[in-house]
Amino acid sequence: MCELLAMSSLLPTQLTHSLAALAAHAGGESHNRDGWGVGFYRGRDVALFREPTAASDSELVKLLQNQGPSTKLIVAHLRHATQGAVNLANTGPFARELRGRMRIFAHNGNLRGLGLSAEFDGGCYQAIGESDSEQAFCALLARLQLMEMQYPELPSLHERLFLIGRFAADLRRLGPANFLYSDGDALFAHADRRFNALSGKVEAPALYHWHCPVPHTLLQDEASGEQRVSFIASVPLSEDDWRPMAEGEVIALHDGAVVETLLLGKGKNDL
């Protein structure tokens, strides 16, 4: 299955070894060789880099590892194609503008029948490719648009997290629905289930969270003063103490810290 990676920090920093560690997971006989992408936030905008090729073979990944922009928020993705051809249009993360902010989304799983359900209508947001991940993103944006148009700025973090939790609960009925979403202000992560090669089952944990002591070799701290950094990843990228997220856990991170958590009910559609 695909792999996800995200970082949230208090002060701008440069992603270094964690990007290399992620890219290495596309090497050899890995199934995650169908594309890669990484988005670096700068305020309301995002610098997005994607290729429909293996990250382990990419010169662009090496360039970003050594000279990538400093940022407080990153979302990255390795693709294992399950729906849609191997091309740029189907390569995550996906980005769209909503109310003057770039939004970014990356998904891991296989959502069957998503495009046939009116419940996941994207409204004015249309997918460019054929992937279930992009279709899910469009559906999320349609729901966010309905809520956000009622506010002059972003709704409270609690309101955003609750909507994302409801969306995650709906999505899980179609299959594994691990995803990362950001509006440039906060990072949201939903952990569901993932294929475990050791057990041969689709099960939790599907995402891991690590609050990183700094300075650390997984990143390059360019800021002066006190720093705070958190990572979310499909699998631990180091030998540090990564916390497995529970099935149905949805967290919101801001400035490198988890600020609020939801846990979906056992019925897959309850908060």
Rank of each mutant, 00 (worst) to 15 (best):
residue 30 S to N: 06
residue 132 D to Q: 07
residue 5 L to A: 09
residue 71 T to M: 04
residue 60 L to N: 13
residue 250 V to C: 00
residue 173 R to P: 08
residue 91 T to V: 05
residue 139 A to T: 04
residue 58 S to D: 07
residue 173 R to T: 05
residue 152 P to K: 04
residue 118 A to D: 14
residue 177 A to V: 01
residue 123 G to V: 08
residue 125 Y to P: 10
residue 271 L to I: 10
residue 41 Y to A: 03
residue 135 Q to D: 06
residue 268 K to V: 01
residue 203 E to V: 02
residue 187 L to R: 06
residue 131 S to F: 09
residue 96 R to F: 12
residue 146 L to Q: 15
residue 180 L to H: 12
residue 61 V to H: 14
residue 31 H to N: 09
residue 119 E to C: 00
residue 71 T to H: 11
residue 2 C to Y: 14
residue 126 Q to Y: 12
residue 234 S to C: 05
residue 162 F to Q: 10
residue 125 Y to F: 15
residue 121 D to Q: 05
residue 234 S to P: 14
residue 16 T to E: 14
residue 25 H to T: 08
residue 101 R to T: 10
residue 147 M to E: 08
residue 188 F to S: 03
residue 75 V to N: 11
residue 7 M to H: 11
residue 219 L to C: 07
residue 90 N to W: 09
residue 160 R to M: 07
residue 3 E to S: 04
residue 36 W to P: 06
residue 89 A to N: 15
residue 76 A to W: 12
residue 28 G to C: 02
residue 227 Q to L: 01
residue 112 R to T: 08
residue 160 R to H: 11
residue 224 S to L: 01
residue 247 E to K: 03
residue 136 A to Y: 08
residue 99 R to D: 05
residue 199 S to L: 00
residue 244 P to N: 05
residue 127 A to D: 11
residue 117 S to Q: 10
residue 194 R to E: 09
residue 269 N to C: 03
residue 68 G to P: 09
residue 229 V to G: 03
residue 271 L to R: 04
residue 144 L to I: 01
residue 94 F to W: 15
residue 100 G to M: 07
residue 52 P to N: 07
residue 41 Y to P: 04
residue 258 V to K: 12
residue 74 I to Q: 10
residue 99 R to S: 05
residue 187 L to H: 13
residue 203 E to T: 05
residue 64 L to S: 12
residue 242 W to P: 07
residue 165 G to D: 03
residue 40 F to S: 09
residue 198 L to E: 14
residue 32 N to K: 14
residue 37 G to F: 11
residue 43 G to D: 07
residue 200 G to S: 01
residue 76 A to P: 12
residue 128 I to V: 13
residue 165 G to C: 00
residue 4 L to A: 07
residue 162 F to C: 00
residue 84 G to A: 02
residue 247 E to P: 03
residue 31 H to I: 04
residue 136 A to S: 13
residue 232 I to F: 14
residue 192 D to I: 02
residue 164 I to L: 03
residue 172 R to V: 00
